[in-house]
């Protein structure tokens, strides 16, 4: 099955990004596909490569980048939401791309299931 994922909150403040990541990992392990992960609202902050969490904590941004590299997961950051919050190509982490809201609608249409994680 093909899953579309929507992440509406940034890293660390809310558990949303962690839950979404764990969901994706479990789905892939079960042989499903992640059609796309779309980052919206403060969720765009998951895509900054300027994040430097303490060494004994998980690195949420890198974890998403690795998921993209290992499983060819399409990580899309909403351009309008990103520009509002200072996320641009120059500080975008590896594996993410910035695109329009149409990518979220397209994901809703193409994926078998759409799951939202937020506050």
């Amino acid at each position: 099955m093909n899953f579309g994922i929507l992440v509406n909150e940034g890293p660390y403040t809310h558990e949303a990004s962690d839950s979404a990541y764990q969901f994706c990992k479990a789905a892939l392990a079960a042989g499903h596909q992640i059609q796309r992960v779309f980052f919206y609202h403060d969720g765009v902050n998951n895509a900054t490569r300027l994040t430097e969490p303490p060494q004994d904590d998980r690195n949420i941004v890198n974890r998403w980048s690795k998921l993209a590299a290992d499983h060819k997961v399409d990580l899309v950051v909403c351009v309008a939401a990103a520009l509002r919050r200072g996320i641009k190509d120059e500080n975008l982490a590896v594996g993410f791309r910035i695109s329009g809201l149409g990518q979220l609608i397209e994901s809703s249409i193409q994926a078998d299931r759409m799951v939202t994680f937020g506050d």
Binding site: H41, A80, L101
Partner: peptide
């Protein structure tokens, strides 16, 4: 919070997809 506004922005884009 910004959710209402940004939700509306999604809806406007969605209109172009004829769903």
């Amino acid at each position: 919070t910004i959710y209402a506004l940004e939700s509306l922005e999604v809806v406007l884009i969605a209109a172009a997809f004829d769903q």
